[in-house]
C-alpha cells in the first residue's frame, strides 16, 4: 500500500513542479479561452439568438453560453498537451523509469492522469476567475458543484490523451492529432452553439455532435455550473472515461511491443 501512495505522491509532485516551471504554458492555456470569450463571443452575440433552455432560466448572453464550452476546451487542450508530453517522455526515456518501476502499469498511468487532471482543473478555475472579473458569472454554489464535473471531464479527456499517446509514435505526428481530434471534437459539440441550433442546419451534424463525448462533457459542466446534475451527460462521460482508459491500458501493454 505504501508503495502506491509514495509513488502517487511522487508523480503528482513532479507534474506540479513541471507545471510551475512552465509558466508560459499556464498563460497560454489561459489566453486561448479568454480570446474566445472576450473577442469571438463579443462578435458573435449579435449573430446568434439563444432561447431559454435548461439549465438557464432567463435569457443569457452568448458569453455566458460558451463559458462551459471553454472550460471543456481547457480540459481538452490540457489532455492533449499531457499526451504530447507523454510521447516526449517516451522519446526522451524518462517514461522508461516509470514503466520499469515495480508498479502495475495501470497504476502508473492512473497517477499520470490524476496529475494532469489536477492541473487542468486549476487552470479552469483561473479562467472562471478571469471571466468573473469581466462580469461573466454563475451562481455562487456553481463554482463548488462544478468541481466534480471538471474532475470527471478532465479524467475523461486526459484518458483520451493517454490513449492517443499510446498510438502516436512520434512527436511530429501530433499536428495530425490537432487536426483530427481536437478541432473536430471542439467544433462538433455543444461548446459554441446549442445542439438544437445545429439541428436546424443539419440533422446529421446534430447527431454526430450528440454522440461526441466532448458534448457530454460540456453539458455536464454547463449543468454543474448551475448546481444541477445532467445525469445523461454524467453517464456518457463516465462511460467514455472507462472506454478510453481501458483502450489506453491495452495500448500500453508491453506484449503489444509498442514501448520501444
Amino acid at each position: 500500500m505504501r508503495l502506491y501512495w509514495t509513488s502517487l505522491w511522487a508523480i503528482l509532485a513532479r507534474e506540479a513542479l513541471r507545471f510551475v516551471q512552465q509558466r508560459e504554458r499556464f498563460v497560454a492555456a489561459l489566453v486561448r479561452p479568454l480570446i474566445w470569450l472576450l473577442v469571438f463571443a463579443a462578435g458573435f452575440r449579435a449573430a446568434l439568438g439563444l432561447s431559454i433552455s435548461p439549465p438557464y432560466q432567463t435569457y443569457i448572453t452568448y458569453e455566458t453560453y460558451i463559458v462551459p464550452g471553454l472550460c471543456g476546451m481547457i480540459l481538452l487542450f490540457n489532455g492533449m498537451q499531457s499526451s504530447l508530453s507523454l510521447v516526449y517522455d517516451r522519446e526522451m526515456g524518462s517514461m522508461k523509469l516509470l514503466l520499469t518501476a515495480p508498479l502495475p502499469r495501470g497504476w502508473v498511468l492512473f497517477c499520470k492522469l490524476l496529475g494532469s487532471t489536477a492541473i487542468s482543473v486549476l487552470q479552469v478555475y483561473a479562467f472562471l476567475g478571469v471571466a468573473a472579473l469581466f462580469d461573466i458569472t454563475s451562481p455562487g454554489w456553481g463554482y463548488v458543484t462544478v468541481l466534480p464535473a471538471l474532475i470527471v471531464c478532465g479524467l475523461m479527456l486526459g484518458a483520451l490523451g493517454l490513449l492517443l499517446s499510446s498510438f502516436v509514435r512520434r512527436l511530429e505526428n501530433f499536428s495530425g492529432v490537432m487536426n483530427f481530434v481536437i478541432f473536430p471534437m471542439f467544433f462538433l459539440s455543444s461548446a459554441l452553439y446549442p445542439l438544437w441550433k445545429m439541428a436546424e442546419s443539419s440533422r446529421l451534424l446534430h447527431d454526430i455532435c450528440a454522440v461526441n463525448p466532448f458534448t457530454q462533457a460540456v453539458e455536464l459542466i454547463r449543468f454543474a455550473l448551475y448546481v444541477e446534475v445532467n445525469w445523461a451527460a454524467l453517464g456518457w462521460s463516465v462511460l467514455a472515461l472507462a472506454v478510453f482508459m481501458a483502450a489506453a491500458l491495452v495500448g500500453y501493454d508491453p506484449a503489444r511491443g509498442r514501448q520501444r
Binding site: R2, L3, T6, S7, W9, A10, I11, A13, R14, L97, L98, A101, P102, L103
Partner: peptide, 11 residues
C-alpha cells in the same frame, strides 16, 4: 534520486 526512490516505495 528522491523521485526514483518514491517510485520504489521509499520516502
Amino acid at each position: 534520486l528522491r523521485y526514483f526512490a518514491a517510485l520504489h516505495g521509499l520516502s
